[in-house]
Write a protein that binds this DNA or RNA. Sequence first.
DNA 1: GTCTATAGGCAGATAGAC
DNA 2: GTCTATCTGCCTATAGAC
Lengths: 195, 195
Amino acid sequence: MASTRTKKESTTPERILDSAERLVQTRGFNNFSYADIASELGMTKASLHYHFSGKAELGYALISRYSERFSVALSRIEQDSSPVGEKLEAYANLYGDVLRGKRMCMCGILAAEYPTLPKPMRDAVRRFFDENQRWLAELLTQGRADRALAFEGDPSEVAQGIVSTLEGAMLVARSYGDVARFNTTARQLLTSLAG
Amino acid sequence: MASTRTKKESTTPERILDSAERLVQTRGFNNFSYADIASELGMTKASLHYHFSGKAELGYALISRYSERFSVALSRIEQDSSPVGEKLEAYANLYGDVLRGKRMCMCGILAAEYPTLPKPMRDAVRRFFDENQRWLAELLTQGRADRALAFEGDPSEVAQGIVSTLEGAMLVARSYGDVARFNTTARQLLTSLAG
DNA sequence: GTCTATAGGCAGATAGAC
DNA sequence: GTCTATCTGCCTATAGAC
């Protein structure tokens, strides 16, 4: 065996990312510190710097991992055999699942702090939105051709609207600690696309 | 005259609020300091504390003033004689105007920082959303009765969706520095309600 | 009302021992 | 890889002179 680690265990960098991820998604990037992560993991701030040289690098790594996971989830939805309407619902549920964990979408909360972020993080946030919109636009195009969806205008622009609506619904719903609020808006959105 | 000030001038507390308002709406509440305001106004941090005892009080005053201004704007829309569809468009333009000034909605950005805010600020953010939803629900109810609007379901829930969508559209559009992105989503939203 | 001066704390980051 | 110790800087806030 090349490695003695089993899949269940996680490396120190992974545990750091897990902790930081939760903190970012609840408080925002500028509202947590190395000290927060260190105390949660029972290690020192200096040790964290060994794995992630600075907060900017940690932040970039966080978005990268989050985006990759999201990509995987999109591929799964794409590959399953359900109709387009259900795929769209599964997409909205990705957001709902995050909110159920009392978290904001990482890139949604980072968008709120956008002007204060280091450039590499800003670019990574945009790429996240871009990829979601591209994926959705393709789904919408296909759904309209199949008569499974009915909407007017450019699929790419409608895709933008979907991302914006879901991000906004999470943002507001979290202030009320009320996942039902998100679901209501998500359902309205999906219904309006089903024609 | 009871006061020698003309309407054009502004008091020191007002100038402090103006500066802090811009900072909150661009960077967020936790990402600006008394030092930022002081340097912008050419005064010291200590002087700011004379007018607003702490950052929590300043933050509360910011939301109060912002909410009151928004209420006035809503009343103006309500009282003008245009049809319901145009009133809805005027409502969306309130958000668009903020974004054109390269700012986020104050309560939208505060919603992203929600768990880190002092309790009085959290409550004030919710009241802002509540008031907007109440006002919109009434407009929607009237618009549907007049056959000027066509939508299904509870007007109050649709109102929730409108607020969420506009907040999300601002959030994402600002990351791209692209007001057109907001307009596209806002127009889709209005179109879907016009039937 | 505004200032100087400063307290006290926490941030991100580094040096160097183990 | 992880630690202790420390640096520097910024934060909110206060005391007290003018």
